[in-house]
Amino acid sequence: MAWAVFLILSFLCIGSVAAMILSRNQAHNALFLVLSFSSLGGLFGLLDAPFAAAVQVLVYAGAIMVLFLFAIMMFNLRGELPVRVKKTRLAFTVGLGTILLAELLLAGRKLVLGSPGAASAAGGDTARLGHFLFSDYLYAFEITSLLILAALVGALALAGKREGS
């Protein structure tokens, strides 16, 4: 059962990213990415991380991609973007990607080939996660809030400028 869910979700995820690569419409790209991130949220849930799954769907599929869509609306680009991908460049990229994939799988060979080991079930406890956030990682947590404030102010300062000023 879990295997079926995993296969469906990973197929959706990889398929929509592939569709993003093939599609030329930016708005479609953003919507494909919403699908991809939502299915990734399902995979997070499969990994006993319900809070991460909820945050993934709310923040990524919700907030960030809506931000992207707003940006695309602002650009108001008419028609599809022309494709002028050079053959050599494409071949180079695919070769590079293949090498990178081989490297990643090689690096994780032990993890992939080794026995899965006894996974303890305690990893996905949201209460424990909250405890961690507000004890061991309190400093990092507070810095994160500062970072978001800085991003807010920075975005206003950058994009809020009037034309020509």
Partner: peptide, 19 residues
């Protein structure tokens, strides 16, 4: 999971500035 939460937060901030 804690690290994932931080990554998502930083990614949100990064998306705002990048856009």
């Amino acid at each position: 999971q804690v690290i994932v939460l931080f990554v998502i937060t930083v990614a949100a901030a990064e998306a705002v500035i990048g856009l």
